[in-house]
């Protein structure tokens, strides 16, 4: 078996005059989780669709589970499970019928499909609802059914495209647990997300995508180091005191604080620790500066983008999101 479960080289895809992918390189070792992070329209979904054989790349090469996605798509499909952005389940069938159908199409045979469906219904706590139409399911239940459907044939590579978008907390936890179980069992997972927190929780490595290219890749810690530590955000009561406040804060901050004139706000990267925060508060009080708001923020996806690209991750509508 190959050590690398997903390997992509120079994937490019163009929709009309929109370059969705401008040369994506990815390498995911078997049995690990790769988090693909990026704003809407960055090309995450397009990349997943190419790797899952739904879409042909204009250029580049991708090997999934040892098979070339363009040359051997059918063999790739035997090895993968895909959960798209929306639960792809048949509303008119029951949960059980959905799973049995997918099982049959996976060529598990009637008996095999039924047995496997039963197993997964139990695992995803859908036994009680198994014989109800999916129409009556909640969003979380649909997602769970969707996830069960993509685990039917025990895939060795799992693609999850924004699996927790719009999910309630319980369903999100179930999903996270499932992903961890799968990885423990040797499955390779590629998941896209807009949430740094989620990638942080699940991913061994993170690739940040923007405008169709990978702009950073590394462990969650690598990325956070690039972004820097926590951020202190101070909003002053009177605009005239902004400069003075920035001068005071620069003494406790790492690097120069960033001043947002419009919002009367200063943003400073600080070493984590209660002492630094206390120092900052004391320094402001001693300088006699009126503080309207004083907050500590952890780095968000926006900060990652800001620090990696110098521009905020601007969400743009992309064709791929409607499909």
């Amino acid at each position: 078996m190959n050590d690398v479960a997903i390997e992509a080289e120079g994937l490019r895809k163009r929709y009309g005059d929109h370059q969705a992918l401008a040369g994506i390189d990815l390498s995911v070792p078997a049995g690990t989780v790769m988090g693909v992070l990026g704003p809407n329209g960055a090309g995450k979904t397009t990349a997943v669709r190419i790797l899952a054989t739904l879409l042909a790349a204009d250029e580049g090469r991708a090997v999934v589970a040892g098979y070339d996605v363009a040359k051997d798509p059918q063999k790739v499909r035997r090895q993968i499970g895909l959960a798209g952005q929306y639960a792809a389940v048949d509303e008119l069938l029951t949960g059980r019928e959905n799973l049995v159908l997918i099982g049959k199409l996976h060529r598990l045979g009637r008996k095999g499909a039924k047995a496997r469906a039963e197993e997964l219904l139990e695992r995803f706590e859908l036994v009680e609802a198994a014989d109800r139409g999916v129409k009556t399911y909640s969003g979380g239940m649909r997602r769970r059914l969707d996830l069960a459907a993509c685990l039917l044939a025990e895939p060795s590579v799992l693609f999850l495209d924004e699996p927790t978008t719009g999910l309630d907390l319980t369903s999100r936890m179930t999903l996270w647990k499932t992903v961890r179980e799968q990885v423990t069992g040797g499955v390779t997972v590629l998941l896209t997300t807009q949430y740094l927190e989620e990638a942080d929780h699940l991913a061994d490595r993170i690739a940040v995508i923007d405008k169709g290219t990978v702009i950073a890749e590394g462990t969650p810690d690598d990325l956070k180091d690039k972004v820097g530590g926590e951020r202190l955000e101070v909003t002053v009561a009177v605009r005239s005191e902004l400069a003075e406040a920035a001068r005071v804060l620069s003494k406790v901050a790492v690097g120069e604080p960033v001043v947002a004139e419009e919002d009367r706000r200063i943003s400073a990267t600080i070493d984590s620790g209660i002492d630094t925060i206390a120092d900052a508060a004391v320094a402001l009080r001693e300088a006699g500066i009126g503080v309207a708001d004083f907050a500590i923020r952890r780095p968000s996806l926006d900060d990652v983008f800001l620090s990696l690209t110098g521009h905020a991750g601007t969400p743009t509508e992309e064709k791929e999101s409607e499909a």
Partner: peptide, 13 residues
């Protein structure tokens, strides 16, 4: 529209 075509296309069917 309901995404089932995507699912079908990811299957070895």
């Amino acid at each position: 529209h309901n995404g089932l075509v995507d699912r079908f296309r990811s299957l070895p069917m």
